[in-house]
Design a protein around this nucleic acid. Structure first.
Lengths: 187, 187
DNA sequence: TGGTACATGTAACATGTTACATGATTAG
DNA sequence: CTAATCATGTAACATGTTACATGTACCA
């Protein structure tokens, strides 16, 4: 019955539908907040996957609601396909990090420009770390018993961002550049 | 002249061609060893990009060599396109980590199975860390003055893998599972 | 009543993946 | 002479991205 093994994006949608029927719009929002830190997906993709899964019987369209909302719900086949998917051996992660390409080809750049770029990215990661830390406090504060699975994936983000910052901070001067003049630390 | 802005994969090929003319085959090998840890590409893709870039004048085909080898070399346009590309602001990284999806949906799995999967992935990361450490010693031992850019990207891999292992080690028992019976640490 | 957020969807294309077909050269 | 490796390439399809078109409902 399953045309082809589910892809992780489609499978995730099925996963979210276990909480109840949802529209494409809701699924995009849910996915971006829940798994968005380590799995990207776009609106287009969600609508496409939903249409495809409706075609192969993994989900069912409900009646249109308020603003033309079109809720989808799991079918038994969808539940089964998800159960099978979640048991499979997950593939290994892919990381595509354009900044590392820029650094790898850094000899073709004026050092100051490379240093600027690196500094900007470092800042972005500092901000991301702050966001994760805030999410973590929020999660711990909100529920009396925080969800272990959600916490584990969030902790991955924290470990990752801390590692990235450590890495930025140990880059040699050739790459990080020196202090940007007027902006010196108290040390 | 540049049809569309270069994609990072194509740009990397141009980057490698700065060292001299190379065939698709060579480029695949070079790319996989030099940037393969944070940028994936396949053979098919390389041949496709080369053909496209030959069409738009960024590279030039040379004469067929020994085993029908078809060397490509940079043109001035290619050099210019690369120079422009490398100066651009690199996009932020994308990480797609299927294991985290499995954990996020872990409530749908028997805990022992989840623990097994997690353990297998932890092992794989331990091995990857070992490989990186070996590469690092090799790089430091080989040249009297190791390349700062190559070392920086390698160090990213080291930081990343260490962080991932730390993360694995602090996962709660619900996810990591208990000790696998006969396999207890001396502590 | 007009702007913003909600909501679905299509189109077009870029990129990534897998599998296969073909042949040359080399090493044993 | 035969298996392994080198080397190019195509085909087919899956997935990802961007841009756009359309209309609804809420709220200030």
């Amino acid at each position: 019955m399953p045309d082809r093994p589910l892809n992780p994006t489609a499978a995730s949608l099925l996963g979210f539908l276990h909480y109840g029927s949802m529209t494409g719009w809701d699924l995009v929002a849910t996915a971006q907040t829940v798994i968005g830190n380590y799995w990207t997906l776009t609106q287009s993709q969600v609508y496409r996957e939903l249409a495809a899964m409706a075609g192969s019987g993994l989900v069912e369209e409900g009646e249109r609601g308020r603003r033309d909302r079109k809720p989808y719900s799991l079918t038994d086949a969808g539940r089964a396909a998800f159960a099978e998917w979640v048991r499979r051996e997950p593939g290994s992660e892919t990381i595509r990090f354009p900044l590392l390409l820029t650094i790898a080809f850094g000899r073709h750049l004026p050092p100051e420009l490379l240093a600027e770029i690196v500094a900007r990215h470092r800042d972005a990661h500092r901000e991301q770390l702050a966001r994760y830390e805030q999410m973590r406090s929020a999660a711990l504060g909100a529920a009396d018993e925080p969800d272990a699975h959600g916490m584990a994936t969030l902790d991955f983000g924290l470990h990752y961002e801390r590692a990235v910052l450590d890495w930025f901070d140990q880059l040699p001067v050739e790459i990080r550049g020196g202090e940007p003049a007027g902006q010196v630390d108290s040390a």
